[in-house]
Nucleic acid binder design. Structure first.
Lengths: 230, 230
DNA sequence: GTCTATACGGAGATAGAC
DNA sequence: GTCTATCTCCGTATAGAC
């Protein structure tokens, strides 16, 4: 299901001096298609990988440039600072995952169907794009105050999508929850955390993870069979 | 639900020369009672706060020493490196949360009761000790390979406790799950993630969060009322 | 055990040639 | 747009006095 076109174009650099391992090195490069010119995109992809592996503060600009096959100085032609790289990554990643979530939430069917679709898609994205997702979810605090505020706004919108779905299901009488906001947050927690533990080649595919989490989300909102607990 | 005794004892330290803000600055200092001498403990507590705020790599030894009211050099009397501080924090934190989880899981009652108690206690700890928990959960990658391996072993034991509980409930016919391991991991994800978003003074107390997550955990394992989804 | 002073290396960012 | 060379600052860790 994972549309994986492109692969690596332009990987015909003279010396084959890839210093970094990685089968999934270029998994999801499509996500960065919009970034131009090519050198800027290569730097961005290199930064995503480095930030995901070591974290923003432990990553050096030399490392990023090296992964992109450029000199340290080349980075500053395309980005004013290291933080600007993080900002771009965070921005694109948040927009992409929000858009995915919205599309699923706006699909066909009742609240259960759409909630399952939304959580499934969101969870799956965090597995498929675990490299990007790790940066997006766990390096926020390295953003400048302005950029941080901008990203937080996107996150609130993400939360609202799920919360609205849960509330809609409650109004429709399909769901029964103790606290819609907290339930929605819990569903997002589940999905986000995939970026922390997921490793390619693990025992489940991204699609299976999404499906499994969709099932868990429904269990969270459908009144349990057993009673006498409240 | 969520049997909770103790609360914080021993919050009566004499001198009050705290340079840093924070209402919750000393929330859970009890956890570090075992660390001696006093200067070493103050440094450790300062490190927990700094690492939680900025992350390990963004924290300077000068900052840690400053928060503890000491000169930069004083740190190296008590710890060989900055990483050793992280290791101690991670070790104590993992041991504490594992112990908590085990106690709850070994309590009275059937699988449902004990699962609810375990998830409740674990979730509550991540809220109450959110500062420590943030370091414990999100700074692992800064550990040395040896220390990392040691901590991973503790984490596996934590996962096993919850997984065993879920499997026990399935065998007893109380639970119905698609995948016990994945379900247990999801419960842990929920609890861990509390450390990421929790802020003191938010709309729910740590105890309420624990109770809410205990309820969600039960929903995850009790077969849903509605059918026709698989 | 704690301080002041400092060695040493490395990181972000720039200058100026090509 | 990219490179080589470099500036400048700052962070970890140590030396040696008290």
């Amino acid at each position: 299901m994972a549309a994986q076109a492109s692969g690596r174009t332009g990987e015909t650099r003279p010396g084959g001096e890839e210093p970094v391992a990685a089968e999934d090195r270029h998994a999801g490069c499509d996500s960065w298609r919009s970034v131009a010119p090519d050198a800027a995109r290569r730097l961005l992809i290199a930064a995503v990988e480095a930030f995901a592996e070591r974290g923003f503060h432990a990553t050096t600009t030399r490392d990023i440039a090296g992964r992109a096959g450029m000199s340290p100085a080349a980075l500053y032609i395309h980005y004013k600072t290291k933080e600007e790289l993080l900002h771009r990554i965070s921005q694109v990643g948040h927009e992409r995952s929000l858009s995915l979530l919205r599309d699923a939430a706006a699909g066909r069917g009742g609240p259960s169907d759409r909630l399952a679709a939304a959580v499934g898609a969101f969870g799956r994205w965090h597995a498929e794009q675990h490299t990007t997702a790790r940066v997006v979810q766990y390096e926020l605090s390295a953003l400048s105050p302005d950029h941080y505020a901008e990203i937080v706004a996107l996150r609130r919108r993400t939360e609202a999508v799920v919360r609205d779905l849960v509330e809609e299901g409650v109004r429709a009488g399909e769901f029964e929850v103790l606290d819609a906001r907290a339930t929605a947050l819990a569903m997002l927690s589940l999905c986000l955390d995939v970026a922390r533990w997921y490793r390619p080649g693990g025992r489940r595919t991204p699609e299976e993870i999404g499906d499994f989490y969709a099932d868990l989300a429904l269990r969270m909102v459908l009144a349990p069979r057993a009673t006498g607990r409240h």
